[in-house]
Write a protein that binds this DNA or RNA. Structure first.
Lengths: 261, 261
DNA sequence: GAAAATTTTTCACTGAGTGAAAAGGTAGTT
DNA sequence: AACTACCTTTTCACTCAGTGAAAAATTTTC
């Protein structure tokens, strides 16, 4: 245990960290890059990236297209599927999501809480164009989206306190931005058993969401995004709650007998 | 340039390769492990894995549960979503798959060719139990499944030759196992425009599949798995072909104006 | 409560990784 | 065809990051 922490300004990187930095250079905005772009974004010398990228390519974590541009490789995708979030949750949820989608013919989504954000795990949509905010993997604020509110409302009080203690960024006119207002809203969510968000995150977008409870703990939320603001929205609520409850029960079942598949 | 190559028997590993080996130790069969298991499977000293795993965890490529067991981290999943196979293909395909699923209420799947296998990219199913063979990410033989055959039939002749030149493992009574029979079958697929496989891979499972053509090249296949062997199967064919063609056109469109989203 | 697993920390040694620089490619422009 | 600009690949001497056996700490098992 040395007296001072070791942070030699910027190049505080192990080989592994550098390799991960190379991978991390790719993003939703720039999912494919040339070698030099990669180096620039990763903040590493080109020669270094050249070597690392070569090894990552060998392991199929990176791949190069005809033009020599790098993008993430199939291996990356395959391994992503082994993540608990996908392997357990998504797989179990699919039938329920599909049924819900079948019944209401609107975009349905599944989200979990990770850190201080909600993350979309799955989204079934008939829209041919996908808004960036709601891509699978997208991180969205807990306080300003229906799925986020559904999760937050049924979380432990200590966690709610943490979130309401943080800055609550405003996205639109109707975004809840004070701890007081947030708590009041969460009370309402708990009372009616689902969240209803009108244009709190994106203008023109309304959504409802219900929590997925597993042995008394929120594990996820299932939501319906209704861009058309149709008035039969209330019709969807029972179907949505049924899906959420069904999934919750299914997850409890799976937890009980580990891996019946 | 030294005279002899450097392969010190077994430990011919760079740091990066070792780190990837640690990640690669996790698998669908064992998606979570203790430190020592990880080291054993990766074939590396425990202390080394301890350090590497620590760094991978820091980068959120690994995560530890309450008991200290390692599994793949959220980052891994997030990055997997940036892979072309997901970001482009799956996202564009979803509306078509959903519509198809809506119309026929059977399990629909999307597969691509990777190396010498087909790989399931997406599967929409109402079944609560997922057979291992047809999980997303699963690799399946080109010659013995409907999606595989649909892809193979419309591939370049040189590729077909490579595949038919390889051993064609038998899975059931009806599996095609000779180059002759394979070519004849592919002819038929080309003629009718879709593949129809009856129990060639898994007993009791029938499937149909149509190729997704993008600018004259097969990019994927859309299939319907019909475990019930219902006789209205032929009713599904037009819907399926429409979905496949629609997706093909959509992909051409996206390729033309890069990223209209 | 002793034995048998784990996981974590330490530390002296050394070769694997480094990155500046040069060479080799590929376009695009005048 | 020569010039410019940017990209990829290779080389190589230096040295510091990574190594892993072994000891210490912790948890699990019987």
């Amino acid at each position: 245990m040395s007296a001072a922490q070791e942070f030699p300004k910027s190049t505080a990187k192990s080989v592994t960290a550098r390799a991960l930095a190379v991978l991390g250079a790719l993003s939703a905005q720039e999912p494919s890059m040339t070698l030099s772009q990669l180096a620039r974004v990763a903040g590493l010398p080109i020669a270094t990236v050249y070597r690392l990228a070569g090894e990552l390519e060998e392991g199929r974590f990176l791949q190069r297209d005809a033009a020599g541009r790098y993008s993430l490789g199939v291996r990356m995708w395959e391994m992503g599927l082994l993540t608990p979030v996908h392997g357990h949750l998504r797989e179990a949820a699919m039938p329920f999501l599909l049924n819900l989608q079948y019944e209401c013919r609107e975009t349905v989504q599944l989200a979990v809480c990770d850190g201080v954000d909600a993350v979309y795990i799955e989204k079934l949509t008939l829209d041919t164009k996908t808004p960036v905010q709601s891509r699978i993997g997208a991180r969205i604020p807990l306080h300003a989206t229906a799925v986020g509110q559904a999760i937050l409302a049924f979380s432990e009080q200590s966690f709610i306190d943490v979130i309401s203690g943080m800055p609550l960024p405003r996205f639109t006119e109707t975004t809840v931005t004070t701890p007081r207002a947030l708590n009041k809203m969460l009370d309402q969510v708990r009372e009616q058993g689902f969240a209803h968000s009108t244009q709190e995150y994106v203008l023109g977008s309304t959504a409802i969401a219900a929590p997925v409870m597993v042995n008394g703990k929120v594990e996820a939320a299932i939501g319906i995004v209704n861009y058309e603001l149709r008035e039969d929205l209330e019709v969807f609520v029972p179907a949505m709650r049924e899906a959420a409850d069904g999934l919750g029960r299914r997850l409890e079942e799976l937890q009980a007998n580990p891996e019946v598949r």
